[in-house]
Amino acid sequence: MLLKRWIPLFILIFVGVMTLISWFVPHDPIGGLGDNFSQFFDIIASFAIILGAANLIKLQGSKIFRRKRNWQYSIVTIVGFIITAVVGINWHITMGVLPEGFNYIAGPHVNQATSPFYWIWWYIFTPLSATMYALLAFYVASASYRAFRARNLEATILLLAGIVVMLGRVPLGQMLTNWMPDAIGFLRIERVADWIYTYPNAAGQRAIMIGIALGVVSTSLRLILGIEKSFLGEE
């Protein structure tokens, strides 16, 4: 019980309270403690990233081991992982001559043009990552055609605001209302788009932001006061 419940609860409350106080008391010892906690957090976050990678390999490995459906593709994942990890961790692997005056040192080697890690980042990671997101353009277009229906007042307002913003932000759309004389220039589509996202949008977003902020504050308080214990697997 001590290891499972009380120690993590003590860590959470102690770290939470000290961090909170360090906002108001930036002087030592509390300020210094808060600074150290920031450093610790960043280091622990790095371990979490490595844990994530280890977990992925464990899952993909078990998929191969148990010959689950499409297990062959898991080999691709693991091979991709191993090659990237090896060339990333081993600072001696190079694909060409180092620039003059540059020594091979661990750490900065990952962003050298001669590093195979950099090559993988630029020619494998970049196109894959960018194209995955670019696919969304097609799906957003498809959704525009098939799903966005002006069924009621709310949906109509949403669609109209979307259309005005879309047209108002590009010169081709702005051409539609360029003919308007200056006297009614405020009705030009780019002006209306600017107005929508500066005022009504800001109002809507602010309401959401304030709502979320109050939610975050209350959740944080519940955590720091030890009321919220769901991370311990408790209700």
Binding site: Q39, I49, L56, G80, A85, G88, G107, W121, I124, S129
Partner: peptide, 27 residues
């Protein structure tokens, strides 16, 4: 599917390597 799985593996290793050299090693 090949590309998708390759992306998963490469990006996991990429994050891990970058986290190691930029945080764990120096800090």
């Amino acid at each position: 599917r090949f590309a998708e799985h390759l992306f998963t593996g490469v990006s996991a290793a990429y994050w891990m390597v970058v986290a190691f050299w930029n945080q764990i090693h120096p800090n």
